[in-house]
């Protein structure tokens, strides 16, 4: 609720995402990527609706090479849902809000 989408990088990934006390949805993105820009407002909307129960974060793959390698990311945006430090599910591409909301609801 109104916390905003959290920026994470290779240094903060473990503490903010893997060891979070809530499930976390991470948007792997980059500033040059058009579809990433298109989906950013959807992440914001979902954060406003579900931010109390889930951490909404984004990781710029340009500045953080380790996390994308760790999770075999080869297309952006890729959105990965983590729970207890493990990958629960993921979505690739600028998908409709309903689809992303479906992913979020898996963690509720």
């Amino acid at each position: 609720m109104g916390q905003g989408v959290l920026d994470v990088d290779d240094n903060s990934f473990e503490s903010e995402i893997l060891k979070a006390d809530k499930p976390a949805l991470v948007d792997f993105w980059a500033p040059w990527c058009g579809p990433c820009k298109a989906i950013a407002p959807v992440m914001k909307e979902l954060e406003e609706a579900y931010g109390d129960s889930i951490v909404f974060a984004r990781c710029n793959v340009d500045n953080s090479p380790n996390a994308p390698t760790q999770y075999s990311i080869r297309a952006i945006p890729t959105l990965i849902l983590f729970q207890d430090g493990k990958v629960v599910d993921q979505i690739v591409g600028a998908v409709p809000k309903s689809q992303l909301e479906g992913l979020v609801k898996k963690a509720l």
Binding site: A30, S72, I73, R74, A75, G93
Partner: peptide
């Protein structure tokens, strides 16, 4: 195989290859 080698955006994903 989307995101596992299938991509729809060269500008976004070239760097991964």
């Amino acid at each position: 195989l989307v995101g596992r080698g299938v991509s729809y955006c060269v500008d976004c994903d070239a760097n991964f290859y």
